[in-house]
């Protein structure tokens, strides 16, 4: 679900065209944008506290097979949440799961890992060695 939540909405649309098939869905509940309060810990490891809220959109879609897919995604893009929920429903179907994992989830996860790698590589170019200049002696 994390991979679907993190995916670019346009990429999900495209993948749906390719692998979603002609499955019909009905919303299990109205797609809705709301808030999640983000928590942190004092000092990174200590007492919990509320940092502030973030917008989140959730969707629940029922497939013709009866599987209910669920999605909670950052931001306010309802279509993104619904697409993620559809895939989540299909992924619960043992017959479709292996194919979808290979054709949808793995490529998305790989793209996300590449993006992360790019950030890390860029950060690495600004890694610096500070020298202490000792006086005397």
């Amino acid at each position: 679900m994390g991979v679907l939540a993190r995916a670019e909405p346009t990429a999900l649309d495209q993948l749906w065209l390719e692998h979603g098939g002609d499955a019909t869905f009905t919303p299990a509940r109205a797609t809705q944008t709301g808030l999640v309060m983000v928590r942190g810990r004092a000092g990174g490891t200590g007492q919990r506290f509320n940092v502030g809220e973030m917008t989140v959109t959730r969707a629940a879609m029922t497939a013709a097979t009866g599987h209910v897919g669920l999605a909670y995604v950052r931001g306010r893009d309802k279509r993104h949440a619904e697409m993620a929920a559809r895939f989540d429903a299909l992924l619960q179907d043992p017959q479709q799961r292996p194919n979808l994992l290979a054709k949808v989830i793995e490529p998305l996860a790989a793209a996300q890992a590449r993006r992360r790698q790019q950030v890390e590589t860029k950060a690495a170019t600004t890694r610096v060695e500070f020298f202490t200049v000792a006086r005397g002696e």
Partner: peptide, 12 residues
């Protein structure tokens, strides 16, 4: 907006 809940503490 409605509040959906509290996140688990983020791991910085």
């Amino acid at each position: 907006l409605e509040r959906f809940g509290y996140s688990t503490p983020v791991d910085t």
